[in-house]
Simulated assay, not measured.
Amino acid sequence: MSILVTGATGTIGSLIVQGLANAGAEVKALVRQSGKRAFPAGVTEVVADMTDVPSMRAALSSVRTLFLLNAVTPDEVTQALITLNLAREAGIERVVYLSVIHADRYTNVPHFTGKHTVERMIEGLDIPATILRPAYFMQNEFMVQQAIQDYGVYPMPIGSAGVSMIDTRDIADIAVAELLRRDNAPGALERVTLELVGPNVLTGASAAQVWSAALGREITYGGDDVAAFEAQMASFGPSWMAYDMRLMMAGIQMHGMQGTEGAVERLQAILGRPLRSYEDFVREAVGEA
């Protein structure tokens, strides 16, 4: 029996596939198109589409453990609910689901509420699962790094309420640990929810200071204008996604994005090491530019 990883060609999914392969697990990587990415030796590529029931039934056969990651798409909820229903149909009792922190609080943000709907299914049907709730990804900063370096402005409108950004490599390592814990268990384990946060609480101003220190010159915060952020996002992506991201940024400004007390310590106990800091991430990004 094997571990099926959805989203296997993406940033987090590919890291999870590699981590599981390094641990000697039997891994199946779900892809929509064959040959899109080279996988580690021993990883089996499985071609399927989450909206195509026959292909997903086939993909989930002979699978013991499922990692479920859905990209932000208009039919994200449909994909997730179909996949979970088919997993139950196949008798899979080991699931790790990648949700988002505060999915129940950002009620007007489409992809947050979508993930909360999936969480409600997991809870309502008592599916044995680990729900991973990550905060804002540090790697999102790659989208604006060039602008930071060229114009001396940190443009992400994250406000001043405080965001505990997390490195995607830490997300992947925690996911691998949970997948292996469930896969190696003699039976289904109780449901667990983990808030995935980094060790630093950042504001727009303090993030700009970190970039200033790494670049050796002043970087200023671009401010809280979410309308301008939406317009910029819409210039290179679909308008529905740009608006979704605008609503998320407005929510970050209002609510912040931080874990509950003890979240960092709990994650570091799982990892057996410290979480990666935002300062280290920025220094690494600048050094590789």
Rank of each mutant, 00 (worst) to 15 (best):
M156C: 01
P157Y: 05
P157M: 06
P157V: 06
I158E: 13
I158P: 01
I158R: 05
I158G: 03
G159N: 11
G159D: 04
G159T: 13
G159R: 10
S160P: 00
S160H: 08
A161F: 14
A161C: 07
A161E: 07
A161Y: 07
A161V: 05
A161W: 01
G162E: 10
G162Q: 11
G162C: 03
G162S: 15
V163D: 06
V163Q: 09
V163F: 01
S164E: 03
S164C: 12
M165V: 02
M165R: 12
I166W: 08
I166R: 12
I166N: 07
I166Y: 10
D167E: 15
D167L: 13
R169W: 14
R169E: 00
R169D: 08
R169L: 06
D170Q: 07
D170Y: 05
D170L: 14
I171Q: 02
I171C: 02
A172R: 04
A172G: 04
D173N: 05
D173H: 12
I174Q: 06
I174S: 09
I174E: 07
A175K: 07
A175N: 04
A175S: 14
A175V: 04
V176H: 10
V176W: 03
V176M: 05
A177T: 11
A177H: 05
E178I: 04
E178L: 07
L179K: 14
L179R: 15
L180F: 03
R181S: 09
R181W: 01
R181C: 00
R182P: 03
R182K: 13
D183Q: 15
D183I: 01
N184Y: 09
N184Q: 08
N184A: 10
A185E: 02
A185P: 02
P186K: 01
P186W: 06
P186Y: 11
P186R: 03
G187M: 02
G187N: 06
G187K: 08
G187S: 14
A188T: 00
E190I: 00
E190D: 11
E190C: 00
E190S: 14
R191Y: 02
V192T: 10
V192F: 00
V192M: 11
V192I: 10
L194Y: 05
L194G: 03
L194D: 04
E195L: 00
E195C: 03
L196D: 09
L196W: 15
L196V: 07
L196P: 13
L196N: 07
V197T: 09
V197W: 09
V197S: 10
G198L: 10
G198V: 13
P199H: 07
N200M: 05
N200G: 02
N200C: 01
N200A: 14
N200D: 15
N200T: 15
L202Q: 08
L202K: 05
L202T: 10
T203Y: 06
T203L: 03
T203E: 08
T203D: 04
G204P: 05
G204E: 01
A205C: 08
A205F: 02
A205N: 02
A205E: 13
A205D: 12
A205Q: 14
S206A: 00
S206H: 06
A207L: 04
A207S: 09
A208I: 08
Q209W: 03
Q209N: 09
V210G: 04
W211D: 08
W211T: 12
W211P: 11
W211A: 07
W211C: 04
W211F: 15
W211V: 03
S212H: 09
S212N: 10
S212C: 07
S212E: 03
